Amino acid sequence: MSLQALQQLGLAAVLLAVSVVFGLNTAGFADLGNLRNILLDATPTIIGAVAMTFVIVTRGIDLSIGSIANVAMATAVVLTGTKVGVSVVTETGFAVYPVALAAGLAFGLLNGWIIVGLGVNPLIATLGTLTLYRGIGLHLTEASLYSVEGGLLALGRGQFLGLGLPVWLALALATGGGFALSRSVVGRQMLALGGDPRSAVETGIRSRRLILLVYALTGIAGALAGLIIVGRVGVLTSELGFGFEFTVITAVVLGGTSLFGGRGSILGSMLGALLLTTIQNGLNLIGADPYLYDVVRGLVLMVAVSIDTLTTRLSRRQRASPV
């Protein structure tokens, strides 16, 4: 069994153990309705984690995905919504979806261009756009709370076969993303680029196009996450997407994707997202301090990064040692 498979198996075991502990000690956790809510709550993180996996396997990072969710939704609601009365209540049609996705794509491509066109380190580039995009979103909405109605609610609140539409969308994207990463030519090129950038370029891999592609994917994923979140709660606030990037990155690293590039798993990222959501749900049900989740998430990220660092060092030593 490969190291990646062992990591996924271990993560699944942890998810099961956490679920059992909460189920035995928390009233209502194991109810079917609550389990459905966990799946639904996890969908934005799963969608973001699928795209972020592609970024991280190429040795990149995107700290702006939460801000893209914010600015894409602000752009879409302001451009397509119609204010009702004197309050900020906005009636939206289905045009909000293509506008939000187009905005997410544009902001994602801008990230990619800054990185490949200007040669800026991905961490610095997306740290800058994290603030830039959030500022644009605040300017567009004037930091107001928008209550939304109409077509925007269809995706977030729609149901199919007893599950929310976002759950089916997340499953479809995770399945397609897993196939693309492990079985397609482009996926193998991304892994090769992250594993050894110089060798990848020497073999003819068009690294600039791949980097633009992965940041375009996170832009679209950020917009999709925003559509789901706002569609579910029916409100667009200035806090939309705040901290979302760290939840997504934690899920990806927890799932076995290496921050050093060249190794990643969509299935692992999805399990990581489910684990984080399950922990948050359980803590909410037991009435824990709402800030405790940030502590847990930070600890989980530190453990995951430490394991990734140790695993990478061990792998390099094994490759370097004589046979």
Score class of each variant (00 low, 15 high):
L127E: 01
R316G: 13
L161V: 13
V201S: 11
R232H: 07
G222E: 00
T90S: 12
G222T: 00
F22N: 07
T312D: 14
A251S: 09
S144A: 14
R36A: 12
I286N: 13
G23N: 08
V201Y: 05
A170M: 07
Q8E: 14
T309G: 13
V55W: 08
A13T: 10
G151R: 10
P44E: 10
R319N: 03
G117V: 01
T257A: 02
L240G: 09
Q159S: 14
G241P: 03
P122V: 01
G28N: 05
R297C: 04
I47N: 01
S2F: 08
S87T: 15
L118K: 01
L105T: 10
T92M: 14
R183W: 10
V84M: 12
A106S: 05
E202Q: 15
L210W: 04
E202T: 14
V88P: 01
G264W: 08
A12D: 10
S315W: 03
L152S: 09
G287H: 07
L109C: 04
V185F: 10
D41W: 11
F260S: 12
Q8C: 12
V300W: 11
D196V: 09
Y97E: 08
T75S: 05
G108W: 02
L217Y: 00
A30F: 09
E149I: 14
L254F: 08
S64D: 02
Q159C: 08
E149T: 15
Y133G: 02
F29H: 08
T80V: 08
S182R: 12
G23W: 01
L153I: 11
S199C: 12
Q7H: 12
Q8G: 05
G33C: 04
A180Q: 03
L138E: 04
A51E: 00
G156P: 00
V300I: 15
T80N: 10
G66C: 05
L6S: 14
L123H: 03
A143K: 13
G219R: 07
A76R: 03
L39A: 15
L227W: 06
F29A: 04
L191Q: 06
L254Q: 01
G150S: 12
G33V: 06
L259Y: 07
G187E: 09
V305K: 11
A72E: 02
S265W: 02
G194S: 01
V201I: 13
A12Q: 09
P98T: 07
Q280P: 00
L271H: 02
N284P: 06
G117L: 04
L285P: 09
S199P: 07
G135M: 04
V86I: 13
G287N: 05
A69T: 01
N70V: 00
R319K: 12
T80M: 10
I205D: 03
A251T: 05
V167K: 08
N34A: 09
G33R: 12
M270L: 15
I220N: 03
T247K: 14
Q318K: 13
P322G: 01
G158H: 11
L3M: 14
S207C: 06
A216G: 11
T131V: 14
L130I: 05
L24T: 15
L16V: 14
G226Y: 03
V88W: 15
E142N: 11
F29Y: 13
A225D: 00
S321G: 13
L11G: 07
